[in-house]
Amino acid sequence: MVKKKTVMKYFVKAIWVFNWFNSCGFTELVPVVGSRWDMERFGMITVNSPRKADVLFIAGFQTPKSMKRAQKIYEQMPDPKFVLALGSCPITGGMYWDSYNTVKKLEDYLPVTMYIPGCPPRPEAVFDAVFKIVQHVHGMPDE
């Protein structure tokens, strides 16, 4: 029987990311991609299709309309998959806490693996979250 850890190890060797960003989400996460913090040195690549992705990054305020699309994207991702919510907007609605058309709690719509607080979160915090996923897999018992 193939061990779960063995399989997962291969998956988390290089984390491929699919981005679902509204509003300022993308511009705030550009430093992670750029040369200073450079996520590619850890094997993190932004992919052009959710079918290749391991991790779904969600940032910026989400509306019920955008959430429908995000769910479609999530369903297309192969297992094992993780959802990382970046910034304060997906956590509580952020500065849009009293907006009539903004999603206040992301976990009502998608199974969120980890929330990264900050407005915007520092690139170090994003890497920390990704390393936590890797550590989690390495710490798995050999079943």
Binding site: T63, P64, K65, K68, Y100, N101
Partner: peptide, 10 residues
């Protein structure tokens, strides 16, 4: 923008 909106015009 307002898919599935049930409230009054905002």
């Amino acid at each position: 923008m307002l898919e599935d909106w049930t409230g009054p015009p905002p």
